[in-house]
Simulated scan of single mutants.
Amino acid sequence: MARLLRFLGAVLGSTIALFAGLFTLIGLLAGGDAGLIAGVTNLFLQVTVTTVAVTILIGIFNLFGIHLRRVISRGRGWVYSLVLLLSALLVFFFRLINDNASSMILLETVQVSIESALAGLVLFALVYGAYRLMRNGVTLGGTLFTVVLLVVLVGSLPLPELTFLANVRAWFLAVPVSAGARGILLGIALATVVAGLRILIGQDRSYRE
């Protein structure tokens, strides 16, 4: 009996996912000319957006609860939890009173500074990574990584004597880096399409078990 109920639940879940996905796909492809299907598609999209928003709110409240309990119990790292709670409350307060100037000050003085510091740490991480690669053995990949790293870092210096390296750095950013980024985005798009097709044909594991 339990196996039958599990099977029926899997069939029901797959059927709902299949029809919802097909309706949404047809409605998006047809646009406003689909009539009833377009209305159903808009309804599905609104339900999805609302569900995602509620999920984000639940996650935020859960995050607040975890850090609040850590502050109350004086657990490990409670100071960082206190800073997080105060920062979040300040941001919410400024948004509630519609004080964009204070929000921008908080953004520029705190978040931008932290992001700049983290970006600076990336330099040391890359240099240390190149050192580890070359220490373990001189290979073609390690040598290429080290040379590219040195060219990009040295080419970033604002010195007129390094114009050639600056041009090489610009070429690296415009051609190989751009190609790699587009390849990653293309891979994400293909993976999304494959995942959607698996859901549409009922082959996703979460609907079959």
Rank of each mutant, 00 (worst) to 15 (best):
G77F: 06
M1W: 12
T146S: 15
V127P: 02
P158S: 15
I105Q: 02
F124Y: 13
V47C: 11
R6S: 14
S102T: 09
N98Q: 14
L18M: 15
L5P: 01
L165A: 04
L12F: 05
L29E: 10
L57G: 06
L123Y: 08
Q111L: 15
S103C: 00
G27A: 08
A174R: 03
L25K: 05
R169V: 01
A38K: 07
A38E: 10
A179Y: 04
Y131Q: 10
A195H: 08
V151E: 01
L63I: 14
I114C: 12
F172E: 00
R208M: 08
F145A: 08
A30V: 07
G196W: 05
W171P: 01
G187D: 05
A130M: 14
G187E: 08
F164P: 01
T192N: 08
E209I: 13
F23M: 12
L45I: 15
V122N: 05
E108R: 08
S178F: 01
F124D: 04
W78N: 10
N42P: 00
A130Y: 04
M134Y: 05
V83I: 14
F94A: 02
N42A: 10
I97P: 01
G155C: 01
M1I: 04
S87Y: 07
N167L: 06
L126V: 11
D33Y: 07
R205W: 13
T48I: 15
R135Q: 13
V194E: 13
L149G: 03
A38C: 05
A101Q: 03
Q111G: 03
A17S: 13
A30R: 05
L36C: 06
G65L: 08
G59P: 00
L157K: 03
L185T: 07
R182V: 08
A119R: 12
V54G: 06
L123R: 12
V177D: 01
R205F: 10
A179K: 03
V151F: 04
A34Q: 04
S103P: 00
S206Q: 11
M134L: 15
R76P: 09
R6A: 15
I16F: 10
S87P: 00
L133I: 02
A191V: 05
V79Q: 09
T48G: 10
R69H: 10
A166T: 06
P176N: 11
V122C: 02
T48K: 09
L150Q: 02
L96Q: 09
G39R: 11
S87H: 08
A166L: 09
Y207R: 07
A181P: 01
A88N: 07
T109D: 13
P160D: 15
L197S: 06
L22R: 02
N98S: 14
F164M: 11
L57D: 12
L4A: 11
F19W: 06
A20F: 13
R6G: 12
S81A: 14
M104Q: 00
I97N: 07
A20Q: 03
A125E: 09
L197T: 12
L12E: 07
R69S: 15
I201A: 09
L84S: 10
A181G: 14
G13Q: 13
G155R: 00
L165N: 04
A189D: 09
Y80N: 10
L22N: 03
P176D: 15
A189E: 10
G120E: 02
L200N: 02
R3K: 13
I114H: 04
A179I: 15
